[in-house]
Each structure stands twice: as C-alpha cells, then as structure tokens.
Design a protein around this nucleic acid. Structure first.
Lengths: 198, 198
DNA sequence: ACTAGTGATGTCAGTCTCTGTCATCAGAGT
DNA sequence: ACTCTGATGACAGAGACTGACATCACTAGT
C-alpha cells in the first residue's frame, strides 16, 4: 500500500470541499487543492479523472447500495415500489447522519453549473443501474426504465426538500410523501380532459 | 448584422457535426472546427460558450416551443397531460422531418460522456422550464416538478426508441405508448405488496 | 545485511480549452 | 470623406489534463 502519508485521496476530497466552499469552484485551482492536501497536482489526477470528480466519490457506494436493495426486494414487489424501498433504506442507513455534510456539499454543487452537470450524469448512471437491477428481477423493458426514472425523480425532489428545510425532517418521510405526490400527479391525467390526446 | 461571410454560426455547427462524426469528439480540436468553417478559434468561442455547446443550439428553440405549448394547453388539462400534449406537438412539428439529422447527432452524443453530460444538463433545464410553465397555469409545487420530470422521462425513453428503430415509426405514437407504460408502471405499486412502506 | 521489485509520488514538457485585450476591417449613416 | 458600430483576427496567458520518466520508501527474497 501507500508508503507516504496515507489517505491522500481523503485529504484531497476534504481540501477540495473546503476550498470550493471558501472560494468557489472556479477560483480554486487543482494546484490549490493539491497543495492543501500536501501532494502534487499530478497526484490529484491520479485519484480523480478531473477536477469535478473529487466531489462525487461517494456516488459509487450509494449506487451499489441501492442496486443491492432493489435486488433483495421481496418477490412480487412492483418495480417502482422496489426502488422506493431502496431509497427508504438509503435514507435511513446512509443519509440520516450526514445532513450537515450533505448540505455543505450540495451548496457547493448548486453554486456551479459544471458541478450540477456532473451530478446529473451521476444520477443518470444511477438510473441506468437501477433499471438493470429491475430487469434482473423480471421487469420488462420500458417499465423498468420508467420506474427507475420515476424513482430518481422522487429522490431528486425529496432530496431538495430535505436539504432545504433547516429542521432535518426525516428524509424517509419526505420520500414517502413525494412518492404519493408522484402517483397523484400521474393519475390525474387518467380522466379524459378534452386534450386531443392520441 | 454580419459584414463578413454571413452564417458563421451555422458553418461552425455543420463543421463540428461533420468532424465529430468523422473523427470523434476528443480527436477534434476547436481549431479544426474553426478552420473548416473558415474562421478563427476565437470566433468559435464568441458563438459558443464551450466546445460541447456547438451541438446544442437547437435546444433553446425546442424549450421555448414546449413551454409555449404547455402555456396554451386547454384549461383543466392535468399537468402531465399538458406536457404530453406539448411533446406530441413537438413530435409533429419539429422532429417529424429530422429523423436522419437526429440520428446522426444522437450517435455523436452517445459516443462521448462529456456530450451526454451536456445533454442531461439541457434536459434538466427543459424540465425546470416546464415546471415553471405548469406552475404558471396553476399547478402546485411538488406536482408541477414531478409532472415535468415524468414528462421528460417519457420523452427520453420514447426518443431512444424513435432514434433506434430504423423504420421511422411516428414519434407521436411512440410517445403515446410510452406515456401509457409510465402510467401502468406507476399505478402498479398502488396495490399493497407487503413492502414495509410507511 | 544486500539486492531486486513494487507501488505511490514527484518532475517536466507539452497539448488543448477557454479568456482578456487590443487592433482591424466592412458597411451604414451623416 | 468621416465616424460609428459590430464582427473578426491576432496574441498572450491561465488552467485543466496527459504522457514519460525519475525517485523514494518499503517489501520480499537471498
């Protein structure tokens, strides 16, 4: 393993979040981050493919967790419910104790378009992985992708609320409410409304 | 207006799509594009904020069209139906005659992560704009965003099918089918399934 | 201990994206 | 002709990222 000061990766992640919070993403150079972490610019790029990636290391773990949860959902669970259940589990086991961290991180991301762009890419990858997991448990194709998309839409919407509200309302409760809203919104259109339609 | 050879913007867009198709996005430099278009690299960056943006000029027009359609939807139309109606209109009036172009463009985008990233950003902006349009016609907040997200999910899924299938099936028909699939997928979960839930 | 091997890091040179600044040039209005 | 304006060119430079090679600390084998 490493022979130098261990934990270079973690130091880089911490340094980056601090500097982005203090000075903003654009006004922080990779050289700045590397200096604070006590390594070289070159080393930064050995750990992270690009400057933005330093903020998204945890995404991989979340994705694996959610995919695992979907795979283990009780048989007979509908695709959307399987995703919703996975989100509930993540809310309890991953997000619950990281409200402060999530806020700081999200504030940085929201303040910069490039970072929001990367976040969307990560969410799209997550959506695709969930669709695969749903197919693996028997869902057919258009449904699997749509359930995954809907589930992530719920997650995005709920996450904004959770991070925005000062009093850290239980993330799981917000997810449940948001899912109900989605169902209501989609069902609303069921009744004929005079729109030309098909 | 321009005093030099007019249409610099269009020439840059054409040159970029050609070169990206021929050599790939990474192996094409902005200098290459500018040279083929008969301008300088500096001029490229006067028209487009960055190298990727040259492929997304049409997005703005599409967004305005869809927002306009949503605004004009008959009163009483549900949010999701308003979005679906707008998509139908766009399918007929914008996409119908551009199947070949859409395929080429999408092939380029799909072959590069950075471009897919930008595409996601554009779709997110579109989603946000639709949510605003829905609120303007009376939708409440969580519903507006969720309807917009769901509508865009339908669009994304349907677009993939439309571009993938060789025989250019009517885009509108695919959209209608996909919307029905979404409703089925979301309703499935309505019945209790033994999932812990709330 | 001595020596070779391994993995993480440093060093350096270079390409490409993107920006700021100033000069230039064609055409419109006077 | 004279000026004003808007688009473009020319240049310099910062910063992101890459490839190639050297180095150093520790490990394993002898």
């Amino acid at each position: 393993m490493g022979r130098w000061e261990p934990g270079a990766r973690g130091r880089l992640e911490t340094a980056a979040l601090e500097l982005f919070s203090e000075n903003g993403f654009d006004r922080t150079t990779v050289a700045d981050i590397a200096a604070r972490a006590g390594v070289t610019e070159r080393t930064f790029f050995r750990y992270f493919a690009d400057k933005r990636e330093v903020l998204f290391g945890a995404g991989q773990a979340l994705q694996e967790f959610l995919v695992g949860q979907v795979a283990e959902a009780p048989e007979g669970t509908s695709p959307l419910d399987a995703v919703a259940g996975a989100l509930q589990a993540a809310a309890a086991e991953i997000f619950a104790e990281r409200h402060a961290f999530a806020r700081q991180r999200q504030a940085v991301i929201d303040s910069n378009t490039e970072l929001r762009e990367r976040e969307l890419l990560k969410l799209a990858a997550l959506t695709a992985a969930l669709a695969v997991a749903l197919r693996d448990r028997g869902a057919s194709e258009p449904s699997a992708s749509l359930a995954a998309e809907s589930g992530i839409a719920v997650f995005k919407t709920a996450f904004v609320r959770w991070v925005t509200e000062d009093n850290a309302t239980a993330f799981g409760a917000i997810i449940a409410e948001t899912l109900a809203e989605l169902r209501a919104a989609v069902e609303l259109g069921r009744r004929p409304t005079g729109l030309s339609g098909d």
